[in-house]
């Protein structure tokens, strides 16, 4: 019961902040709400008894990545004059269409998951105990290839960013 209350409260906050992220006009405020959002997601992890994930969420997303966002926001001049919002290239209908598609997809997922069988039980057969160890074990056994691919992707992105940003190499 208490868990459910906590979950729904957190979820409400998460959604509320998510809306604020896209609704605020000031870019920096928007990034700030994103941080709050991440923090509440971390709280959700704590609720799920995954403290390691929670801490990593804070460390990587709230602490690291969003700082870089802020960095970019503060360095790059985003304070365009208001008329810049009336972008002639804006495709309003395309946006609506995309949103509708994504909404449909989400609905489909929700329907499918509620209609389908309960998901397979958690990987009970892990040879290690403890939250951290379990995450590590899964990452380096079952999800090794996605993990490595993800890290390659990050590397490529990093090099690409350097090439783009550095004027003279």
């Amino acid at each position: 019961m208490g868990e459910a209350i906590a979950f729904y409260t957190l979820a409400a906050f998460i959604l509320g902040f998510a809306v604020l992220v896209i609704a605020t006009k000031d870019t920096v405020h928007s990034v700030l709400f994103l941080v709050l959002d991440f923090l509440f997601v971390a709280a959700l992890y704590v609720l799920l008894e995954a403290p390691f994930l929670a801490v990593i969420q804070v460390l990587v997303y709230a602490g690291g990545i969003v700082v870089l966002y802020l960095f970019v926001v503060m360095l790059v001049n985003l304070k365009r004059p208001p008329e810049a919002h009336q972008d002639p290239r804006r495709r309003t209908w395309l946006g609506f269409g995309l949103s509708a598609a994504i909404l449909a997809e989400l609905a489909a997922i929700a329907l499918y998951s509620s209609a389908g069988a309960a998901p397979a039980g958690p990987a009970a057969a892990l040879p290690v105990a403890g939250n951290t160890e379990q995450v590590g074990w899964l990452l380096y056994t079952r999800y090794l290839i996605p993990f490595e691919i993800a890290s390659m992707l990050l590397l490529v992105a990093m090099i690409g960013a350097i090439v783009l940003a550095k004027r003279e190499l």
Binding site: N77, R80, P81, A165
Partner: peptide, 10 residues
């Protein structure tokens, strides 16, 4: 302000 430049560093 230079419009059009994507990374318009001040």
């Amino acid at each position: 302000l230079r419009h059009g430049a994507m990374f318009d560093t001040n």
